[in-house]
Design a protein around this nucleic acid. Structure first.
Lengths: 157, 157
DNA sequence: ATAAGACTAAGGTCAAAGAAAGTCAAAATA
DNA sequence: TATTTTGACTTTCTTTGACCTTAGTCTTAT
């Protein structure tokens, strides 16, 4: 007897295959279909569709809510995935962040203008905050922006 | 299932596009057309056509009453400078930040892709941090990105 | 002719109900 | 012990409806 989470994982992945890596679903509907608790869907998403595993999730609550799952294009964007999974840890200095963005530009993942914009978002000046928390916050922001760059392409495929 | 509020929003926006950003309508008529409660029109106006989102609403009750909606089209530089000097204070909520970025996109000051990138940088998730400091940090980042957009333009003028 | 008051035709407000999704930790299971 | 399953509780967003306010119109007494 396969674990239900594995079944749900496979189900979602087959849906993704049929729909070019992009998919929108209703949490309660899916939970109904598999006769499980709605929160199990969250568990499956958290453990099998994380960023490190190459997926991006967007969702909305309330009437007409949804969960959107994007499969990021993995092999095409090696460096970016490396950054997300190992390259950027919990903390990143300003210098390191700027270097990373420069390299992204040199490898033509982003335009010069986008690089300029991204840099502005990770500057010490932008983040304000004294303390060592700055480097944590910067890491979060940088990762989020890199994820957005990856997600954009999948989303508009 | 698309949210009715979104449908009404799009309907109004398309009317605005056809009429140079100015439009007068009858609340009950519109509610009839969409078969919804009249107060849902107010909900749509409040959540999607606020001043921050770039719209101005005037209305009149009683016989011959109406609701007038104006799209405020501002000059790019004026608007961005306004945001930096008054529009964005020391703190900004996630919602408010996303609305500002949406407006920049609707006014075509930035592309949709850039909007997506900028949004990713101001999300609660990106900033991490529980606490109320989030809104301060977000304000700093958003201002920094807006400054970068201004600087880029003048630099490449 | 006119001012007061009643009637009608709008739009406004607010709170409750409904419709999702998120979180977290306890319980169950492998 | 680690992973999975469940469920109670929370948060967010939307929809509905009862009640309120305001503007114009019509009657009527003076």
């Amino acid at each position: 007897m396969a674990r239900l989470s594995d079944v749900i994982e496979e189900f979602i992945k087959s849906l993704l295959r049929e729909s070019e890596g992009q998919l929108e679903l209703q949490r309660n509907e899916l939970a109904d279909y598999f006769e499980c608790a709605p929160s199990q869907i969250n568990y499956v998403l958290a453990t099998r569709f994380s960023l490190n595993q190459g997926y991006h999730i967007e969702s909305r609550r309330g009437g007409g809510g949804y969960i959107r799952i994007l499969r990021l294009d993995v092999d095409k964007n090696d460096y970016l995935h490396y950054l997300l999974s190992e390259g950027i840890g919990a903390k990143v200095s300003e210098q390191a962040a700027l270097q990373i963005i420069n390299r992204m530009k040199e490898q033509e993942y982003i335009t010069q203008k986008t690089a300029y914009l991204m840099k502005s978002a990770v500057l010490d000046k932008a983040i304000g905050m004294p303390s060592s928390l700055k480097d944590n916050i910067r890491a979060g922001i940088l990762k989020s922006m890199i994820t957005a760059i990856l997600a954009w392409d999948s989303r508009n495929a």
